[in-house]
Design a protein around this nucleic acid. Sequence first.
RNA 1: CGGGGAGUAGCUCAGCCCGGCUAGAGCGCUUGGUUUGGGACCAAGAAGUCGCAGGUUCGAAUCCUGUCUCCCCGACCA
Length: 564
Amino acid sequence: MRFSKSFIPTLKETPAEAVIPSHILMIRAGLVRQLSAGIYTWLPIGYKVLRKIMDIIREEMNAIGGQEFHYPALNPKEIWEQTGRVEAFGDIMFQVKNRDYVLAPTHEEIVAWHAKGNVTSYKDLPQIWYQIQTKFRNEPRPRSGVIRGRQFIMKDSYSLDRTFEDLDKSYELHDKAYRKIFERCKLKFFVVGASSGAMGGSKSEEFMVRSDAGEDTVAYCENCGYAANVEVAQSIAEPAKRHTESKQLYEIHTPNVKSIDELCAFLNIDEHETAKSRVYIHNNNPVLVLMLGNDEVNETKLQSVLGGNVRPAHPDELKEIAGADAGSIGPIGFKYRIIADNLLKDANNLYSGANKNDYHIGGIDLMRDVPNIEYYDLRVVENGEKCIRCNSNLEVFRAIELGHIFKLGTKYSEALGVNYLDENGKEHPIVMGSYGIGVERILACYLEQNYDEKGIIWQKPLAPFDIHLIGLNMKNSEIKDTCEKLYDELQKNGFEVIYDDRYEVSAGFKFNDADLLGVPVQIIVGEKNLKNNSVEIKIRRTGEKFVVPLDELNQKLQFILKEN
RNA sequence: CGGGGAGUAGCUCAGCCCGGCUAGAGCGCUUGGUUUGGGACCAAGAAGUCGCAGGUUCGAAUCCUGUCUCCCCGACCA
């Protein structure tokens, strides 16, 4: 590809709307341009990389027996109403104004709809159907470039099986395929156990990339490989103590003491002697959640413990429920259900709120004073706590979700009546799995992991080109002729080449564009080396430079490109 | 949806607080010339309804009201 004839709008300055490295680089190197919040145009170079990613995905999906479909993005609303997901998605689903259509945010319904009446025998199963297609979600806050968009490309696949045992096999196939895909894309990733959330189903795992730009938080054990989304992660942490003697309850005047930190400072005590109170509303009834010290309530865990409808109480409800505002609430005299984190189990001599503003109570014995208390795991795991499997230190950090695999079960097949007949002529709902990869996120994550202060660092197989050929002074006919010849030869030898043939652009400009674009190998043709029938090769990743005689170039390139 | 920030030339931004002539800079772009191994130089030039609407005023980029859009933190998120 000739640079002079290509649309590669590189930018010297950091665009104002971009904050994270991958987003900045995508814009500066001319891979994308934003059209609106969460909506991006892929420019030629960006789309070239994206196609390479999609090709890898296709190969691996085909390798596990996947069949590629192309489902419509525009769907009749009626089908989505049958599974109740118009309501479940709510505002996230785009709806068409002048006809009863919706823009598909995923395709479980459509897959099930096509399976119905067409996949009718046990002989038709199993099936893996996939597509690479644009999805639409009306995200309230798109962010981080293409990482969370309102329109994005997803590889989604769906498995159709006879039994849950067969589903396990389809799930395993996807797990393996996903690992291969991300490995081939040269990503450093890991797999975590996750909450299935509203998708339902028995098991789900997320494929994650560590990044401060991520929207998920995960706990990870380097020693044994335990990894889990903090929504479900567990750890070993020091519990509150039970002393041999319980003190009597006593009230303490604590003016303006609201937080646990303030309480500890005021009374000169350790946070392990305190219990923090949080009030939630569960199916219209207040619930007091007691946590040890400064521990945070894990609302996903709370939700799965309580079931039903759970939300934090509003500040103006607290006075009526507890008789005090946040900061002075506690278990003593609280009239409703009380649940506590396991770390508080049977603790005594605790300090907590008095349900009276500006007062706390000391000497609390949960066994003696709070008879109906229930204990559950309700904590958010914190950095440095011990792994539940191997007792090593856990690390807690942010991550980007690249892919998610779900065992769905029969939720959709039952809702839409998608059944098959077994050997005995007996009808059963088809067992489904659903599996997704954010295609653009692969690119964004790759960039997050492969750049320096000069720009992108590509490596095969994602690199848009193998070689960046730079002709320095194109007005020098000797340079120009050599470049043209090299351009032809390199392509004939099977390399993908971007050739900076721009006539009036200065050397420095070309060098900087090449570094920004990040093609693995640069071949620099200049007057100095050409006098000795040589050119310079620069390795983008390391910055190493070699002067190579023209007749040894091809041999040297084969060697270098193997490693880059 | 809560909190914060921003909309002025293709890009990055100054000017706004404290209203005043024809609205500025750098980069980019066009033309001519000189240059060509790390974002060159000289000269000339094109380019902006100051997000939009309304108001205050002799006069609004600047003050007031409303509104739209974008970004960040949080909430939400299969």
